[in-house]
Amino acid sequence: MLSVCDIDVFYGDAQALDRVSIDVEEGKIVAIVGANGAGKTSLIRTIAGMQRPARGHITFRGADITGWPSCRVCNAGIGQVAEGRQVFPTLTVRENLEVAALLPRARGKLAHSLARVFAMFPILAERGRQPAGTLSGGEQQMLAIGRCLMGRPDLVMFDEPSLGLAPALVQEVLKTIRELNRDGLTCVLVEQNVAVSLRLADRAYVLENGRITLSGAGAELLADDRVRQAYLGM
């Protein structure tokens, strides 16, 4: 469904990604794990069209989307839940959701999308008229996920969805991702929390200093000695 082929990304002289290739099959959960600064967020930003690769190409459903602006990538069906939640603080919860449904592919389905998101996260319906900045961290993460879904994506990239959340909420968020996936959403999950994401993923890539150093089925990597030593402290 999504295929990233040999991309290089630079910020000035600093190389963030070095010949990175990943494949995401439709209906699967793919995890990208790695330490801070390994290039995970750069990879997401590049796929999303917010950062241009210096070389390589990205295809989505057979179309070459390399260098497309982010609005076009979104409208093709790739959504993202950015790191740190990034809700619009003075807009109400409902406005946060509505603004995401302005995407051409989602425009006509506002009522349906809203009903679906509210069914998934009843707390958002309750807090609909409240400024998003007044929500708790967990509620903001739910809003960020709900907001992304308002754009009717076929594939969603989650960037550190568990960051800064209490353990119980982390489980909640991961459960949500699993449910969304069961409903047919293809997911790319970027996490520092290696153990949980590998358990969840059908396939995983390990990113180190801008390079893919390992890849395989989630369970396979979970059993890999190098992964266990480097990321799980075993």
Binding site: A48, S70, C71, C74, F88, L103
Partner: peptide, 16 residues
């Protein structure tokens, strides 16, 4: 208003 609040987040949602 979305761009005013957080331009990066707005772009991530497909706002031009």
């Amino acid at each position: 208003r979305a761009v005013r609040e957080d331009e990066t987040a707005a772009r991530a949602l497909g706002i031009d």
